[in-house]
Every structure is written in structure tokens, then in C-alpha cells.
């Protein structure tokens, strides 16, 4: 009985002493911080993805609290809603930024882009890209080893095992830009999500001349500029033999899509076309994939 009492007393004393020390040290080294930072951090998604350009959500929160205006500060994951909440908390106004989404600009599935060599190194796009152009004769296209998948913290991008190309899950993508940075071929781009998620873009980045690009991949942009001619809004430009659609200028009229001889312009989430224009060639491709 005595032994138990001694043990309890001893442990109790040690515990109390430790608690006292902890409390005193905690008081001494207490960091006095703007309580707003804590509150802003609570509003943020807490993914610590770095998509905003700051190291983690706390970094962003303290930047927002300290900044004079909220220009240039945007949490791509939380989106406009979160930014508005923060703005009302801080009594600032947040500039409206349209929501973006990651878009994969390569359509060279195995079917359209024949394999010409076998890569046998470590399974990393960055390592393969440093070694040579890739397993096909298109030196600009997707390597399919999934550096973007590794980089995504939101499980929003996956390699389709049939096409060996990455596909973005629109519901999960937060436009943090991690995949854009991870892709050694600069294939992934953040584009405006568009009304009802409707988007039009050139699904190719091949800068080779038309003949070489076409030989390497049936669905490569050959820089023929037919799309440039039909575009009424000056939204399409050709640079380095590849067309690019400016999403600020594009009005989603879809005229460029059917004129593309290699079906390299994609339209997403549009209703089916009326009978007289016939189904877009793109739709056919999608079916075959």
C-alpha cells in the first residue's frame, strides 16, 4: 500500500513539475501574431498545395492580411467564393478572377501516334524528356509516365490506360498548377473553365513543320491556319507551326472545330451539334477512343 502511495505521489509530482515547466516555457516563447491570420487560414481549404505561390496556406494567409489590396492574391483551390469570404473578413475587395481548369493539350493516343522506340529508363517523364524526344516521332507530345499524376494533390488527373494520356477530373481539379509545373513537355495549360465548363482548345503543341508533325501523329496540329481564317474574333494565332486559341478572346462559337483537317481542336461539354452540321469529327474520335 505504501509503495503505491509513494509511486502515485512521485509520478504526480513529476507530472505537475513538467506541466509547470511547459506552461512557463510556452508563455516565454509565445509568438504574438495577428489573430486575423488564424481566421483567414480557417477559411482557406488547407491543402497546402502551393498553387497560390506561397509556401502553404498559412503563408498565403499572412500575405493576404499584410497586403494593402488583394490584387494578385488568389487561392485557386478555394476559388472566388473563398476569396470573397476573406475579403469580407478583412474589409477589402477581392478582384474577380474567373475559375480555371487544367487542360491536357495532347491528343496523340497510341492509335494516332505510333511508337517508334522503347523507353527503358526509370518511369519518370522528366528523366525520359532529358534523354530524348520520347517513344514516338512526336518530340512534343505526352510521354504518358504520369509526372502530372504524381504532382496532383487532389487526385484530379489520371492516365487513361487505353490512350496512355492524362485526363483531368473537372470536379476535382482546383487549378493549383502543380501538374503544369511537373510536365516537362509543357503540355498542360490552365484555361478558363468557361460557362457550363464549355471549352475549346487546340489539343496539340507540336512545333514541327506540318509534314513532320503529321507523319509522327495523325491528330497533330499542322499549322495550316484554316482555323485562323474562320475565327471571327481574332482569337486564334499560329506560332511555331502550332495554333493557339486565346481563351480571353474566344466566344465559344465552335466554327474552328469542324474545319481542322487533323481534328486537333477539341470542344468540351457542348451539346451535340444540329443535324445539318453533322456530328463533329471530334465526336467520332471520342467514340473510337
Amino acid at each position: 500500500m505504501n509503495a503505491i502511495l509513494i509511486a502515485v505521489a512521485l509520478l504526480g509530482t513529476i507530472g505537475a513539475a513538467s506541466a509547470a515547466i511547459l506552461y512557463l516555457v510556452g508563455q516565454k516563447f509565445k509568438v504574438i501574431e495577428d489573430p486575423l491570420i488564424e481566421q483567414v487560414e480557417d477559411i482557406l481549404p488547407g491543402a497546402n498545395c502551393g498553387g497560390c505561390g506561397f509556401p502553404g496556406c498559412r503563408g498565403f494567409a499572412s500575405a493576404v492580411v499584410r497586403a494593402e489590396t488583394m490584387d494578385g492574391l488568389f487561392c485557386p483551390v478555394g476559388g472566388q467564393e473563398t476569396m470573397d469570404k476573406i475579403a469580407s473578413l478583412l474589409g477589402k475587395t477581392s478582384p474577380t478572377t474567373s475559375k480555371k481548369i487544367a487542360v491536357v493539350r495532347c491528343n496523340g493516343t497510341c492509335e494516332y501516334r505510333p511508337q517508334t522506340s522503347i523507353y527503358d529508363g526509370a518511369p519518370s517523364c522528366a528523366i525520359e524528356a532529358a534523354l530524348y524526344g520520347g517513344e514516338t516521332d512526336c518530340f512534343f507530345g505526352c510521354l504518358g509516365l504520369g509526372d502530372c499524376v504524381e504532382a496532383c494533390l487532389f487526385d484530379a488527373i489520371h492516365i487513361n490506360p487505353q490512350t496512355l494520356l492524362p485526363e483531368v477530373n473537372e470536379d476535382k481539379c482546383t487549378a493549383c498548377g502543380a501538374c503544369v509545373k511537373a510536365c516537362p513537355k509543357d503540355i498542360i495549360e490552365l484555361r478558363k473553365q468557361g460557362p457550363k465548363s464549355r471549352r475549346i482548345f487546340v489539343s496539340c503543341v507540336n512545333e514541327d513543320k506540318g509534314a513532320i508533325a503529321r507523319k509522327a501523329c495523325e491528330v497533330a496540329c499542322i499549322g495550316c491556319s484554316k482555323c485562323v481564317q474562320v475565327c471571327a474574333f481574332d482569337a486564334i494565332t499560329i506560332k511555331n507551326n502550332v495554333a493557339y486559341i486565346d481563351d480571353d478572346k474566344c466566344r465559344l462559337c465552335r466554327k474552328c472545330v469542324p474545319v481542322c483537317p487533323t481534328n486537333s481542336i477539341w470542344e468540351l461539354n457542348f451539346p451535340p451539334r444540329k443535324e445539318k452540321t453533322s456530328a463533329s469529327p471530334k465526336e467520332e474520335i471520342k467514340k473510337t477512343v
Binding site: I118, D120, G121, A122
Partner: peptide, 11 residues
């Protein structure tokens, strides 16, 4: 010959 694809790997 296109049948035999060459293997490419880092050194």
C-alpha cells in the same frame, strides 16, 4: 526495319 524498335535508356 520498323518491327525491331530500338531500346533507349539512360546510361
Amino acid at each position: 526495319d520498323m518491327e525491331t524498335k530500338l531500346v533507349v535508356s539512360p546510361s
